[in-house]
Design a protein around this nucleic acid. Structure first.
Lengths: 244, 244
DNA sequence: GGGCCCCTTTGATCCACGTCAATACTGTTT
DNA sequence: AAACAGTATTGACGTGGATCAAAGGGGCCC
């Protein structure tokens, strides 16, 4: 199953201090001098083309990756071929934390569009975070945030019905686009219905039908991957007003 | 919803070096001198009676907890009352990592039986792990392990059918009991069918029926909470031989 | 040691979502 | 501009697990 992964390594110096994502990413909370130290550690960037793997399950773990541009999905595949999308990641978010535990990656990370990541060698990150307290703390927060996010997904998969799951997904996407300075109400999804379905524990047809339903009810305007949210409170109501 | 939480603080000194759980817990990989430093940091133990909360969602985050005796569940509760069990924790496992992200706990931790935890003040843990490299690394591994575990649960909730979920659950329990020196094939579950169901995204009736089915097929012997696994390969086969 | 409450099991019925299938749309390639 | 492949929508039907209901155990408290 191994295949050659085409990789582009860009050897120009990266500057976290110049990065407009620093408020979302590892540099958050660091002072300018500390950010410079982090800069020295981020050795290279890597460009990943759409549909290509950033890393694969089983590969040895060397670095974590901060998304500089583009977006990714992570998935887990069972022996029998079933797969589950475990997350979608956007700029400023960190990939690869799953690998720390066993020194090998336990999922696949695949670019949803042409993307670029900052490569952060993990042993050097641990080293620096031993002297830079704010970096240590921010890194811990990022890991913890991932755990909290996962619990949210478990809630979604374990206790919500199809339309609630999709509403939660759309609201989450909206919020994350907003945090990146994009419109809260209008955006392009980079993943297919099938990928959304896998993430939400639904079949693609069910996702499609739920979209159509939302459209009929005037909650959103859907045109393929282009989404316009028309009634945010309506979507939120869908989530909480569940007759227990 | 706030209520007084009865707490017993035991002020005797705890010694990780004497603890038979150290191979599963934070001290793993530390040399004797380093373990002594960790010992100094673990200020107190806390006894938690069955059904009592170790912490609640919303409470401010101060410490993480290593389970010294007993077991716990963690759950998340939505406004409308729906709740989802996000995990069951056994001795040597660490609770509270969810709180790092926002400085407030994002789930509830409830004892499944009379239990005891070691209280590890988080700011002091960060401090010590700045000088003790092995502690830093072990802590990162523990957080990462939690992320990997969560991905496994997402797989389970998103892609498996009821009997597969229960088989995966039983095999996981068996493996964790084994790691603690107990029988791989015979154990007492400390949680109810309802709690198992919540964790697995199923109703308690479905869990009960799946147990009965396993019993009929000679895979396990079930007597209430007492489980005897009769055919481990059979359970594993259930997991992987899914006609995709 | 008796009584009560919670937990579990089992059966009957229902329904949300999956499955199967056909058609339509979009963007890309030549 | 035509042809194509991947993606999305929609309909008809089937089913796994939810729901509703009733009865049987076990453990715990007084």
């Amino acid at each position: 199953m191994k295949s050659v992964i085409p990789v582009t390594v860009v050897d120009i110096k990266v500057a976290c201090s110049q990065c407009n994502l620093r408020e979302l990413c590892l540099p958050f909370g660091l002072d300018p001098n500390e950010i410079d130290q982090l800069d020295e550690l981020v050795g290279s960037r890597r460009k990943i083309k759409r549909q290509q793997h950033l890393y694969r399950s089983g590969e040895s773990f060397e670095a974590i990756y901060a998304i500089r541009a583009g977006s990714f999905k992570t998935d887990v595949i069972l022996e029998d071929g079933r797969d589950q999308v475990t997350g979608f990641q956007m700029t400023g978010e960190v990939l690869g934390l799953d690998g720390i535990s066993t020194e090998h990656h336990s999922c696949n990370a695949i670019a949803l569009e042409d993307s670029e990541v900052c490569v952060i060698p993990f042993n050097r990150l641990e080293e620096l975070s031993r002297t830079v307290e704010s970096l240590q703390h921010q890194f811990h927060k990022i890991m913890s945030r991932e755990i909290v996010r996962d619990h949210g997904v478990m809630m979604l998969l374990g206790s919500m019905r199809a339309e609630e799951r999709l509403a939660a997904f759309l609201l989450n996407m909206s919020q994350r686009f907003t945090a990146r300075g994009f419109s809260p109400s209008e955006f392009h999804l980079r993943m297919t219905r099938d990928e959304i379905g896998s993430y939400l524990g639904l079949k693609l047809e069910t996702v499609s039908r739920a979209f159509s339903r939302f459209q009929e009810e005037g909650l959103v305007a859907v045109q393929q991957k282009h989404i316009r949210i028309l009634d945010t409170p309506g979507l939120k109501r869908l989530l909480n007003h569940h007759a227990a």
